[in-house]
Amino acid sequence: MITIENLTKYYGKNRAVNDISFTINDNEILGFLGPNGAGKSTTMNMITGYLPMSAGKVTINGIDISADPVKAKKDIGYLPEIPPLYPEMKVKEYLSFCAGLKRIPFGEKRRDEIDRVMELLSITDVKGKLIRNLSKGYKQRVGFAQALLGDPKFLILDEPTVGLDPNQVIEVRNIIRDLKKNHSVIFSSHILSEVSEVCDRVVIINKGDIRAIDTIENLESSLSTGLVLNIKVKGEKSTAASIIELTKGVKEMLDITDEGSGIFSFSVQLDGDADTIRGEIMAELLRNNVNILEIYTERPNLESVFIELINRPVQKHSLQELLDEMGGEAADEDDTTDDTKEEN
């Protein structure tokens, strides 16, 4: 388990990371989400012991990274934003050097370990090539292979899929998912779909502040402004509109489009149980001889949650304030508050 307590980082007078706390549990993939310049890389650099923190504490399996860096770093595999590669080295040479740094004993064991990571990231075919001649995707994977050497318990990956082609992205995601069996992974990205696909929990940060820590499902439901119902009908426009508008639970008519030949599309925002409202609307429309061609509800996706979260003005300066606020806001979302409070 990695525990991050009140981590703060100042660059001169600029505060890059502001008093953030969270934990990474065993066998968990934690997404670290934020726009560029949010403090993701700085935080990761502090967790891995590259940058010293201005305040706060990071413990890796109970070992304080500032107090005993060498011991703490043994359990960490780190892939920084720019893969740390020596351009004049060959891939195998480089991995062998990294294995040495991680104190993997020389000889057969080291060879096997290098073969294993090369196999895993399918870079075996370039093992004799100079790193400077590799494409960006290969470089990224060589950097990833380096992080996996020695099978460290915690993997910290800073945007691991940047520069990969779509096939490779899927491969790398699958690798990360497989890693979950024996590892904990912190995975930063600004690509939302990626995070929602792979991660168990997400930490959303912006401008050095944590905006949310939760599972993706909880975030979606706790911060959504309600579901959106889309209905396509054939019939009288005004009748349909008034029926939909007047049904209990419909909060707001968002949009009406005329699709020609007497077909109209409505989208409305719901406030309440979607199934009941949908049933009522359907029944009422049929009773008035309006044909329903299409009806479906739309969940607000992570993207909108993300944008809402990062754009929300923040006055809070401690996690407690944030939790209090979230507790108040999502009082009906019991899981949300429980989950985040546990972390504190």
Partner: peptide, 14 residues
């Protein structure tokens, strides 16, 4: 310059 300092500094080497 090549960002490899990160590798050295995050390895279990003082």
């Amino acid at each position: 310059k090549f960002g490899t300092e990160v590798l050295l500094m995050t390895s279990p080497v003082s």
